[in-house]
Amino acid sequence: MLRIKNINTYYGQVHALKNVSLHLAEGEIVTLIGANGAGKTTLLNSLSGIVPPKSGQILFNDTEINHLEAHKIVRLGVSQVPEGRQVFKPLSVEDNLELGAYLNYRVKDGKAQSKKYMGMVYDLFPILRQRRKQLAGTLSGGEQQMLAIGRALMAKPRLLLLDEPSMGLAPMIVQEILKVIADLSREKKTTLLLVEQNARAALKIAHRGYVLETGRLILEGTADELLENKDVQRAYLGRDKKEIWER
């Protein structure tokens, strides 16, 4: 459904993505692994049109989107959950979700549709239903992350871009969020591109993955292959206790 060929993205003079080619098939969970500054977030931002690539091609369901503005890309069915959640803190949970569905306000019976999606989001994250009148700023980190994901889902995306959903969260909450992400792919057939520092957790739910290093893709493989790859293990999975003992 998504096909990227040779994109190059710059921040001023900094060549942040070098000839990146990548694809996602319908319903797939694909994870991007890489150290800080490797270009993972840049890749998501290039996809969603926030930092458009200077050259290369991005095809989303055979439509070229690399020249489109961000809001038009959302309309085609690509939603991004930004790093650090970025919820609207002075607004209530419900208002945050409604903002995610701003596309619906232009169409007939849009309001009814938003209600329906909101119900679906509340089913995914029951805690948000309890907190629906509360201001987003008063939520815990985990709840804010759920809200950020919920807000992205309100646009009924076919492709969801997730940037570091586990950042700064307790392991229990990370488990819960990753479980919902896996369910989204399995049950709702949403296609997911997942950027995660916690590579091990990401690879457990992903089908495939790519490894980015200083703006270049150096590896493509199934999640199992990447888990077995020593480069990935050394750089991104951390050492096992056992290995430390052996040293």
């Binding site: 096909r3 060929k5 000839n19 080619s21 990548l22 694809h23 290093e213 893709l217 150096i218 493509e220």
Partner: peptide, 20 residues
């Protein structure tokens, strides 16, 4: 079509790796 996309990705990754 899909094969060529996959081949290009893997070729570029392989070249990046051997170059490094």
């Amino acid at each position: 079509d899909e094969l060529e996309q996959l081949q290009l990705e893997r070729l570029q990754a392989t070249i990046n790796r051997v170059h490094k």
